[in-house]
């Protein structure tokens, strides 16, 4: 069996999710990695180092730059007959293209997989992570999206063969008019080892800066609840939860977050959870491994000081 993995990339570099997806599916068979983009030399070089990758198929065209499903799916569909599994990360691109590819190939896709038991048996969360479903598929081939944060990354040490893919010029009906990139120098939320999350109780965008400062001290990614995002305290793509990003860091520190179900759905994969909250009855306080009952406006500045005394500073 051979597995085709679509490489996730952004701004000319391979996204950390790809190494995790490769690790997740390497038990299923040989892995071919498909890189579709324009000016992807660095991405291909990074991908070729991944252990467990047999071949890297490279398709280059200006039309691939937006990573739209409309542009990518025809290429993947043409390659499909050679593969037992066609796999993407369950990020924005994978979520976009899996349904389209599935319809084209008339295959029921299995999405957001968190464990692989065999070639046709997978675990996936349902009901916002409140239950885990084990599903079985006997279809001739599988279309899968993988929740990258549920798997450890594949290490380096590979030496994949690089194969250019002949592609026709890409034409799409939908055109990208504008892209608004959130400026942030914090680690990528989906794969950060430590994440600090802020809720609406920071009171203002200014208050949220305190959360960001604290995150910078410990080198953490920054997350936010939907309420904090809706209030305009934090950008949309920082939202963690059922309708935002699903994270699984080693450590999640929730600052002033009560813990609505929709937020908890996004953080259940965290290995350790610390909650700083003034309300001892908050759901997230009950869920956390370590709790400090305190007012965040007092606790965070003194915590930053205390950490500096222990040699932890930005």
């Amino acid at each position: 069996m051979t597995v085709l993995v679509l490489a996730d990339h952004d701004l000319g570099t391979l996204s950390p999710a790809t190494a995790r997806v490769v690790a997740a599916v390497s038990s299923l068979g040989d892995v071919d990695l498909l890189v579709l983009g324009e000016g992807v030399d660095q991405i291909v070089a990074e991908a070729a180092r991944l252990s467990g990758v047999a071949r890297i198929l490279v398709g280059q065209d200006q039309g691939f730059v937006t990573q739209s499903a409309e542009a990518l799916v025809p290429v993947i569909a043409r390659l499909a007959s050679d593969y037992s599994h066609i796999v993407a990360s369950a990020g924005a691109v994978g979520r976009d293209l899996a349904p389209r590819l599935a319809a084209k190939l008339d295959i029921q896709p299995i999405t957001d997989i968190i464990a692989i038991h065999g070639p046709g048996r997978f675990d996936r969360p349902i009901y916002a992570g409140n239950a885990i479903q084990t599903v079985a598929s006997a279809q001739p081939r599988q279309i899968l999206t993988i929740r990258a944060s549920a798997f450890s990354p594949m290490g380096d040490g590979g030496n994949a063969m690089i194969m250019p893919l002949p592609t026709d010029p890409v034409r799409t009906v939908a055109k990208m008019i504008a892209a608004h990139r959130t400026q942030a120098d914090t680690p990528d939320l989906a794969t950060a080892r430590i994440v600090v999350g802020g809720g609406v109780s920071v009171g203002s965008a200014e208050g949220f800066k305190l959360v960001e400062q604290f995150a910078a001290v410990i080198g953490a990614g920054v997350g936010a609840t939907r309420a904090a995002v809706d209030a305009g305290y934090a950008p949309n793509d920082w939202q963690v939860g059922q309708t935002g990003k699903i994270i699984a860091p080693d450590l999640y520190i929730a600052v002033g977050i009560s813990g609505a179900l929709q937020h908890l759905a996004g953080i259940q994969g965290a290995k350790k959870i610390i909650a700083i909250n003034s309300d001892p009855e908050a759901p997230l306080v009950k869920l956390a491994d370590i709790v400090l009952i305190a007012d965040l406006f007092e606790a965070i500045p003194s915590l930053i000081e205390e950490l500096a005394q222990r040699g932890i500073k930005p």
């Binding site: 349902i126 409140n130 885990i132 959870i273 869920l287 956390a288």
Partner: peptide, 18 residues
């Protein structure tokens, strides 16, 4: 095309401390 074999609760978290 896909059958549901079982549905289970997610692994429970250990109790926390303050």
């Amino acid at each position: 095309r896909v059958t549901i074999e079982k549905t289970t609760p997610p692994p429970a978290r250990a109790t926390g401390r303050t």
